[in-house]
Design a protein around this nucleic acid. Structure first.
Length: 425
RNA sequence: GUGGCCGUAGCUCAGUUGGUUAGAGCGCUUGGUUGUGGCCCAAGAGGUCGGGGGUUCGAUCCCCCUCGGUCACCCCA
């Protein structure tokens, strides 16, 4: 056993896991093309200050989960802990305001957060995500949600629940915060210990409490949408109208507040049918102030992130993982040292003709060669021994039927092409 | 960062109330007479019994620490 292992909370992506992974990403990219989004790739690390200012210095992500380090020049850099800040940074850096608006971008990227690993939670996980920059209309929020919803639907995930809320603009949030405090303060001695702490540190989090005794208080707590400005309220109506026009079912969840400071107005999360620990598979919202947080001009934006590993867990649970990829068509079995050069040359010509070849090498018995061909799942084995070398032919064995016939070396490509073209072959 | 449970071959797991060379199934390699797969049979390779320390004549087994996994909390994807 090797001394080294993957660092805590990280995993190797082995060949068996590849089909599922590619399945998710290609479903996403198909949807992105359908919606007219272009791919962007930003650096794995950015200036630490970018995330601190965008996500918020008091958030868990920034205060305790970032992989930050000083490089040899003394700059503080951080491995990307979320996807949005980099995209907004790129918009500003490259003058995308001069592009046709809005700008629609998507990404597939690793995300790093120093957190205690558990089911569906890793220190390096991967997200697919998209952002729309430069348009404030609530129907764009609906578009982004539709993109997310469509990807998960394309993958076959059923019983998804879309939770939607609006936390308004900063003034609205401040007013709502006061309303929450006014409601909760008199109840203080009935609250759980955590909630009493939240009362001081982060009142919005009171709505997240899972303690049974706090549930009745949550249910009767004031709603954020009752504290929206006229503009924010109208915007929320646009989002809902957009979703209704798209036929996407949603539930307004008054308890939904998200943990990144940049969110304004729309927030949403998508939950799978199974309920347990880490169940949110996608989440996002609007962030009209983010650009200004990081020193840019005002820029409305909305986007989402979706955890690939969590999607895969759900696909696996639902039996929706795709089948293994196709195997090479031909296994080449050289039976002797003398046959090896011919076998190598044959493999080269077959591949040049577009036929997938798995090369066997001398030193294995005919039995071993065929066992390997069998395990590999190829359709044909091309056997080259001394007999074949003398006659300039090759024994072509159909691994499905067990039928075998000699074919002239020069006719092999045509023979395989003919067989794969015919319905029986 | 907090708490519960767990850690024996690549995988899934036995095992020893502390006692000489640690087991199975699957997988892998090779073989079952002349050049032929899948089933079957056999042999082989593969383990510092997660790591370190302690108790003991002796520890994979008991104790402590540590690392890792897992579940819940926190938070999030």
């Amino acid at each position: 056993m090797s001394t080294f292992r993957t660092p805590r909370g990280t995993q190797d992506l082995l060949p068996d896991a590849r089909p599922g992974w590619d399945h998710v990403v290609s479903a996403f990219e198909r949807r992105c093309r359908l919606f007219g989004y272009d791919r962007i790739e930003t650096p794995t690390f950015e200036s630490t200050a970018l995330f601190a200012r965008a996500v918020g210095i008091d958030t868990d992500i920034v205060s305790k989960e970032m992989y930050s380090f000083d490089d040899r020049g003394g700059d503080s850099l951080t491995l990307r802990p979320e996807g949005t800040a980099s995209v907004v940074r790129a918009y500003n850096q490259h003058g995308m305001k001069n592009w046709s608006q809005p700008v629609r971008l998507y990404y597939v990227t690793p995300i790093y957060r120093y957190d205690r690993p558990q089911a569906g939670r890793l220190r390096q996980h991967h997200q697919i995500g998209a952002e729309v920059l430069g348009e404030a209309d609530g129907h764009v929020d609906a578009e982004v949600i539709a993109l997310t919803w469509g990807v998960l639907g394309d993958l076959g995930l059923a019983d998804l629940q879309l939770n939607l809320n609006s936390i308004g603009d900063p003034d609205d949030r401040a007013a709502y915060r006061e309303a929450l405090l006014a409601y909760y303060r008199p109840l203080e001695d009935q609250l759980c210990r955590d909630c009493r702490t939240r009362l001081e540190s982060n009142p919005l989090r009171l709505l997240d409490c899972k303690e049974a005794s706090c549930q009745p208080h949550k249910a009767a707590a004031p709603h954020s949408i009752d504290h929206l400005s006229a503009e924010a309220a109208a915007h929320f109506e646009q989002v809902k109208a957009g979703l209704e026009a798209l036929g996407i079912p949603f539930k307004v969840d008054h308890l939904l507040v998200r943990g990144l400071d940049y969110y304004t107005r729309t927030v949403f999360e998508i939950w799978p049918a199974t309920v347990g620990g880490q169940t949110t598979i996608a989440g996002g919202g609007r962030y009209d102030l983010l650009s200004e947080f990081i020193g840019g001009d005002p820029l409305p934006g909305v986007g989402f992130g979706c955890g690939i590993e969590r999607v895969l867990l759900n696909l696996e649970a639902a039996g929706l993982l795709p089948p293994p990829p196709t195997r090479p068509t031909v296994y080449i079995a050289p039976l002797s040292e003398a046959a090896q050069p011919t076998a190598t040359g044959l493999a080269g010509r077959l591949r040049a003709a577009g036929i997938a070849v798995l090369s066997g090498y001398r030193g294995a018995s005919p039995r071993s060669h065929l066992r390997r061909a069998n395990t590999a799942g190829v359709r044909y084995a091309a056997i080259l021994g001394d007999r074949e070398l003398e006659s300039g032919r090759v024994a072509l064995r159909d691994m499905l039927s067990g039928l075998q016939e000699d074919v002239a070396l020069n006719d092999l490509i045509a023979e395989i092409a003919k067989r794969s073209a015919s319905p029986s072959g």
